[in-house]
Structures are given as C-alpha cells and as structure tokens.
C-alpha cells in the first residue's frame, strides 16, 4: 500500500518532485528571511549598546520598535 502510494500510479517522480521543490524552496526563503532578520536585530542591539547610557535608556523607553527588538533578542539568549 505504501509503495502504491509512493508510485502515484506511475507518476510518482513528477508528483513528488513538485511537492519536494516547493517545500525546499519555501524552507530556503524562510531560512534566508529569518537569518537576515536576526542579523539586523543583533547589529541594531550592538549599535544601541555603544550609545551613552542616558541616551540608551531614553530611547529604549520611548521607542516601541527598540523594545520589540530587545525583547526578541532576550528570547534568543
């Protein structure tokens, strides 16, 4: 029954290749998008760390974007 399912009535190569290509391509784009996002988040935090403490505290409190980035970075570490 499993072999029959894999053979797909003799068209297994075409059916499985289609689903395989879609899966691999989607995973690749997801990996690239996530990697780039994490890279920029890390760089942003690094830059934030280099600021004077007073300035850093002020903008961390006032900016939702910075709060969100710091929250996601804390989750990672």
């Amino acid at each position: 029954m499993i072999i029959e399912f894999l053979q797909m009535g003799g068209y297994g190569f075409f059916v499985w290749a289609s689903f395989f290509i879609v899966t691999v391509s989607c995973l690749f784009l997801y990996y690239r998008a996530r990697k780039t996002l994490k890279k920029y988040e890390k760089e942003f935090v690094k830059e934030l760390e280099s600021l004077p403490i007073k300035h850093k505290k002020r903008i961390t409190k006032s900016s939702k974007v910075i709060g969100s980035i710091l929250a996601s970075q804390n989750k990672l570490s």
């Binding site: 997801y30 998008a33 780039t36 996002l37 920029y40 988040e41 760089e43 830059e47 934030l48 974007v65």
Partner: peptide, 26 residues
C-alpha cells in the same frame, strides 16, 4: 499564510534597517 509570514519578517527587517540608520538621531 506562508507568504504572510515571510512578508512580515522581511517588512520587520526593513523597519529595523531604517531605525538602525537613524539610531543616533533618536
């Protein structure tokens, strides 16, 4: 749903890029 997920991740990356450029001015 997959498209929306990738779009949101990329969109967030673009926002961070802009904020990173302007961080000293904040």
């Amino acid at each position: 749903l997959y498209c929306a997920l990738i779009f949101l991740m990329k969109y967030k990356t673009e926002i961070i890029k802009i904020k990173k450029q302007n961080i000293k001015r904040l």
